[in-house]
Simulated scan of single mutants.
Amino acid sequence: MNHVVTLQDAITAFADFIEPTADELDAIEREMPVILADVDLLDAHIVTLDRTPTEVDERRIRRARRRALAARVALINRAASASMPGGAA
């Protein structure tokens, strides 16, 4: 007869490591504008999945794409300025 053994002890042994650390939460907070811009871009694309995009839809997608790109550039610029000695970028 085979006995079923649970992995509860193995899983709960690392329970402290399951939660995100403060550094990980800070990184998520820094990336939140990029995440939200990407969600807006996905929303713009989802609207057009079941129909032919109108001119308004195409403008919405272009605006969302530009916002997503601008958010990524801002994140990269903040990271670059933070890593430069003396704050010079």
Rank of each mutant, 00 (worst) to 15 (best):
T48W: 01
T21I: 08
T54P: 05
V39C: 06
D9T: 07
L75A: 11
A37D: 00
D16H: 12
N2L: 15
F14G: 07
A70K: 01
M84F: 08
I46Q: 11
E55W: 11
E31F: 04
A74F: 04
D38I: 07
A82D: 14
R63F: 11
P85S: 01
H45T: 08
L25C: 03
T54V: 13
A27V: 03
L36V: 08
A79Y: 03
T54Q: 09
D38W: 05
H45S: 08
L25W: 01
L69W: 09
I35L: 06
S83C: 06
L36T: 06
R62L: 15
R66N: 15
D26C: 03
M84W: 07
T52S: 14
I35Q: 07
V56I: 10
V4H: 12
R78I: 04
H45G: 10
M1C: 11
A80Y: 02
R30T: 00
P53V: 15
L7T: 13
A70L: 03
E19P: 03
A88M: 12
P53Y: 13
L42S: 12
T6E: 10
V73I: 09
I28H: 05
N2D: 10
R67M: 11
D40L: 05
V5G: 07
V39A: 14
E24H: 03
Q8H: 14
I11W: 08
V39Y: 08
R78Y: 03
A10F: 08
L36Y: 07
N77L: 07
L75T: 06
A82I: 12
G87C: 02
E24Q: 08
A70W: 01
A71Q: 02
A88V: 13
T52R: 06
R66I: 15
M84N: 07
R72D: 05
M32T: 13
H3N: 14
R66Y: 09
D38N: 13
A15E: 12
I76G: 07
M1Y: 11
D26L: 06
L49I: 14
D50W: 12
I18H: 07
A15M: 09
V4T: 14
D38V: 10
H45P: 04
N2C: 12
E19W: 10
H3I: 10
P33D: 02
P85R: 00
T12V: 15
I46A: 14
A68P: 01
V34E: 02
A37R: 00
L25T: 01
I35P: 03
P33W: 02
A22R: 10
L75N: 10
A22L: 09
P53A: 14
A88N: 07
D16S: 09
T48Q: 05
T48A: 15
A79V: 04
D57V: 10
A64Q: 00
A80E: 04
A79K: 09
E24R: 01
D50L: 13
G86P: 03
V34F: 03
T6D: 12
L69R: 15
A88W: 08
L7G: 13
D43P: 09
V5F: 14
D43V: 10
A71W: 03
E31R: 06
I28C: 02
R30G: 00
S81D: 07
I76E: 12
V39R: 15
R66W: 09
L42H: 12
A15G: 06
A37Q: 01
L41K: 05
T48L: 04
A64Y: 01
P33K: 00
A13S: 02
R59G: 12
R66C: 07
